[in-house]
Design a protein around this nucleic acid. Sequence first.
DNA 1: GAAGATTGAGAGCTCAATCTTT
DNA 2: AAAGATTGAGCTCTCAATCTTC
Lengths: 176, 176
Amino acid sequence: MAPAKQLSPAEETLWRATMRIVTVLPSHLHVDLVRGAGLTASEYTTLLHLSEAPNREARMTDLARSIGLSASRTTRLVDDLQRRGLVTKVASSSDARSTRARTTTNGMAKLRIARPIHLESVRHRVLEHIDASSVEQLADALSTVARDLESSSRPRKQWVSPGATPPTVVSMSKLI
Amino acid sequence: MAPAKQLSPAEETLWRATMRIVTVLPSHLHVDLVRGAGLTASEYTTLLHLSEAPNREARMTDLARSIGLSASRTTRLVDDLQRRGLVTKVASSSDARSTRARTTTNGMAKLRIARPIHLESVRHRVLEHIDASSVEQLADALSTVARDLESSSRPRKQWVSPGATPPTVVSMSKLI
DNA sequence: GAAGATTGAGAGCTCAATCTTT
DNA sequence: AAAGATTGAGCTCTCAATCTTC
C-alpha cells in the first residue's frame, strides 16, 4: 500500500472532467427522457433490457442485475410499470419461486417512441462534442476502465470502521 | 432536427462504456470513502471545496452550486456536518440574508485523513486501468465534453408534457 | 419584488428482515 | 439451508412553499 501519490497535472485534469461528467450527465439524460417520453431513466432502461431479452421477458433477479438496481427497487419499479400497462408479471412455469417480467405491446410502443428521443439526447449531450477521429480510441480506453470496474470487488456488505454501519446510498456531487 | 440516426459500432461501444462508468463508479468511490474515512461523497466534496475557498468559508448558495447539490440539500448537509463539529455556520457580516459555512480545525483534520484514502481509491478504480500514454488525450477529450455539458441548458424547471410535473430525481441505471 | 436560506412533502434508492419454494 | 421475491425502515436528494432581508 503505497502512501498515495498526488495526481499529475494531466491526471488531475482527467479526473476533474470525469467527475464532472459522472455528476452532471445522468441528470441531463434523465430529464431529456422524462420531458420527451415520460419515462424515467430507470424505466427506460428496464423496458430496453426486457425488449432485448428472449421472449421479451426476464426473471426479476436477472433484470435487477442487468439494470444495476437492487432487487427491492426492481420489484417496486416493475410493479409501477405494470400499473401503467407497460409490463406484466407472470409466474415462472419451471420454478414457483421466481416471477418473470414481460413487456406488453404498449411497453414496446412506448419504447419505440422513447428510443429516438434518447439517442438524440445522447448525441446532443455527448457524442457531438467528441472529435470523430478520436471516438475509436476513446471507446477503447473507456471500455477497459468499465470492464475492470466490473471485475473489481463489488462494494457490498462488510464494514471496517467500528461502531454503527451507515447505509450505502450513493450520491456523488463532484468528488475531486 | 434530424430523425435520430443510429449509433455507429464505435459510438455504441463508447456509449455503453460511458454509461457503465457513470453508473458504477460513483458507488465505488462513495463506499471506499465511507469505509475508509467515515465521510459520504457529498460530505467529502463539501469539506474539500470549503478547504480550498478563501478563509475556508463560502456562502451557502455558492457552496451549493460548486458541489452540485440543491440549496435545500446543502442546508441539511451542512447542518449535519455542524452537528458533528466539522463545519460551523456564521452570519455574513455584509449581508444579513446570507449564511456562510466554514470548516473547523476538526474538519480540516478529517479532510487530511480522507484525502489520501480517496486518492488511492481514484487510482485503484480508474487511473491504474488507463495506459499512461493516453492520459493526456483522454484528459483533452473528456474536458471538452465536460465543458460543453456545463454550458448546455441546465435541466431545470419548465415542462413540456401536459398535466402533472414529475419531480426530477435522477438515478440512472445503465441507460444505453 | 427578488435573493438567500430553510422547511415540508415526496420520489428513488438501499439494506435488513420476512415469506415461500427449492 | 439457500434462492427468489417482497415489505419495512431509513437515507439522499429535489421541488415548492415560506420567511427574512435587500
